[in-house]
């Protein structure tokens, strides 16, 4: 029969100390990821707490010397997927050409990237951009958050998501296309509202 070895107070103190040093400093980056995943602060707070409590509980499963931040990200992502699994959205129809045609016309009139960006996406606000990101299917959303917002390399993102680099590349490719389409639609709809 297999029985685990006992713990004692010194082990517990050491564990707490290690956890404080290695895991707690990543709280802000995880909080931002939670915000982009859930799209609202209340769920983000819950998800963050769940992640850290789980991480503490399974701290002995964390291999010292490996990437703690990536390990915490995986816990958060799995917690999120488990919690919201039932709420998976069906992918909507995406028309990539709409934005491309529009871009093609404005490109002739301007060569300045800032100006183009403004014509495309108007004055979208932070929370509208967040909503657009939150609307992406999770697999694309996570990769867009990691690479485009957090600025991780494909290699780092692959470690975080635990998948090959090629998968990161293809999800990022698709994710950016979905995102630009959403942003364009948001800006477009908003434009109509303003004009009305």
């Amino acid at each position: 029969m297999l029985f685990a070895s006992p713990t004692n107070n010194r082990d517990t103190e050491q564990k707490h100390e290690d956890f404080q040093r290695e895991a707690i400093p990543h709280m802000d980056i995880l909080y931002n990821y939670a915000l982009r995943l859930t799209g609202n602060t209340e769920d983000a707070n819950d998800l963050l707490q769940e992640t850290f409590l789980k991480a503490y509980r399974f701290w002995d499963k964390f291999e010292q010397g490996t990437n703690c931040r990536a390990w915490l990200f995986r816990i958060m992502r799995n917690s999120y997927i488990n919690r919201y699994r039932k709420a998976v959205k069906t992918p909507e129809h995406v028309d990539y050409n709409e934005i491309k045609e529009f871009y093609n016309t404005i490109r002739e009139q301007s060569t300045d990237a800032n100006d183009l960006s403004e014509r495309l996406y108007g004055q979208l606000l932070d929370d509208q951009v967040t909503t657009a990101i939150t609307d992406l299917p999770e697999e694309f959303r996570t990769v867009v958050i990691l690479c485009d917002i957090e600025g991780f390399t494909y290699e780092e993102a692959a470690e975080f998501v635990d998948c090959p680099i090629g998968t990161i590349r293809s999800r990022l490719h698709r994710g950016r296309k979905l995102l630009r389409d959403k942003l364009f639609k948001y800006a477009h709809e908003r434009g109509y509202e303003v004009n009305d």
Partner: peptide, 17 residues
């Protein structure tokens, strides 16, 4: 260009908390 532009746009719009 659209992908590059979108990447920059998102990065500048998103506030870090």
């Amino acid at each position: 260009e659209l992908d590059a532009l979108t990447k920059d746009f998102v990065k500048t719009k998103i506030t870090r908390h």
